[in-house]
């Protein structure tokens, strides 16, 4: 599904990713851990297509196409979803309008018909239950005045509505209390399927108790320095990342 090969990328003049390679097959869940400043968030933004994030070497292939050639919105329509570490507040645009406009924009780009308003409402009402969002929040501005936990749950709601193929979740678990973490995890698990893949960027092993990864990687100094199975996360939690520097 996703093949990242020897990716070098810079933000402004600063090179952040220095030869990162990663392969994600359909149905797999990958966790990426690592120290602050290693390039974890940069990876997410490079995949989503943020302006000012420039690939200088290497390649990213998604479903057989060169992902880096696509506009941000085309990547979304192709099935790439980035759960933001810091979701943006959009005052004056209701959550409901936003969800509908985003889904229809994606469908239109894929040559699908727009979704019926009543069908959509029923569909969204089902999805909000999974992440514990009150119906009234759909009428509020996107993330406007939401708590940190509400913003993260709102990211998961968008993911549930948009039904992407590749979900890159950037620290979606940070700052959540246990109940909210469970809801977020349930949302992610609900999306797991043999056709979909997940990349979890996280600092904390805790999330991986609820969303079992197939692979755990350590991203440090701009590249994957070590990979392992699910138990590798426990070892990292215990030993930290310092020993990897020495290695």
């Amino acid at each position: 599904m996703l093949t990242i090969d020897n990716l070098h990328a810079k933000v402004g003049d600063k090179e952040i990713l220095k030869g990162l390679s990663l392969t994600v097959n359909p149905g797999e869940v990958h966790a990426i851990m690592g120290p602050n400043g290693a390039g974890k968030s940069t990876l997410g933004h490079i995949l989503a297509g943020r302006e000012g994030y420039e690939c200088t070497e290497g390649s990213v292939t998604f479903d057989g196409q060169n992902l880096l050639e696509l506009e941000t919105e085309a990547r979304a329509a192709a099935g790439v979803f980035l759960g933001f570490q810091y979701p943006v507040e959009i005052p004056g645009v209701s959550n409901m309008y936003f969800l509908k406009a985003a889904l229809n924009a994606q469908r239109k780009r894929r040559g699908e018909s727009e979704i019926e308003a009543t069908d959509f409402l029923a569909f969204v009402r089902q999805q909000i239950k999974k992440v514990g969002i009150e119906p009234a929040m759909l009428q509020r501005g996107v993330n406007e005045g939401f708590s940190g936990g509400e913003k993260k749950r709102n990211e998961i709601l968008q993911m549930l509505v948009l039904q992407p193929k590749l979900m890159v979740l950037d620290e979606t678990d940070s700052g959540l209390d246990i109940d909210a973490l469970k809801m977020v995890s349930d949302g992610i698990n609900a999306m797991r399927s043999p056709e979909r893949s997940v990349v979890l960027v996280t600092h904390y092993q805790r999330l991986l108790d609820y969303v079992k990864p197939d692979f755990v990687h350590v991203l440090a100094r701009g590249r994957i320095v070590k990979s392992g199975g699910p138990d590798f996360a426990l070892e990292l939690e215990e030993r930290g990342y310092g020993w990897l520097d020495a290695a």
Partner: peptide, 13 residues
Amino acid sequence: MAIYYLRSRGLDA
């Protein structure tokens, strides 16, 4: 950042 956020969900620029 708001423009990027909206685009990342599929709205054109």
